[in-house]
Amino acid sequence: MVQLPRDAAVVPAVSVTVELFGNAKLLAGRREVDIAVPGFCGIQALASSLAEVVPCLVGGVVRKDEAGLMGSYVFNLNGTRFLEGGVVALKPGDRILLFSSQAGG
């Protein structure tokens, strides 16, 4: 869990790239999108920012209330860390990967 700094509310937004895989990529019709999110950011903020830029993902990939992802999906930061709750510190240029949560095959 990332400890929020006292002045988290004034941390400027950062631009990150969401890479889309699987059905999310097919629905969006593209492989990546840029979104603006707070520098300290949870799943909800990532999902709602993504929904704003790619509204066709709402209902299938992003929850209808935009409070997170549908159960089939998961975010990963820079290919190294899966995000399943809490808050993550992001910096400009970070890449958020959007995968299916079903790993096997």
């Binding site: 699987g22 290919g79 995968f99 095959g105």
Partner: peptide, 24 residues
């Protein structure tokens, strides 16, 4: 028929190719 199986229903296991490639 819900989110727990979506990958398998919509694309199948071959969806892993691009994911695994990205993850090294």
């Amino acid at each position: 028929l819900g989110p727990a199986t979506e990958k398998y229903r919509t694309m199948g296991t071959v969806a892993n190719v691009s994911v695994f490639n990205r993850l090294g």
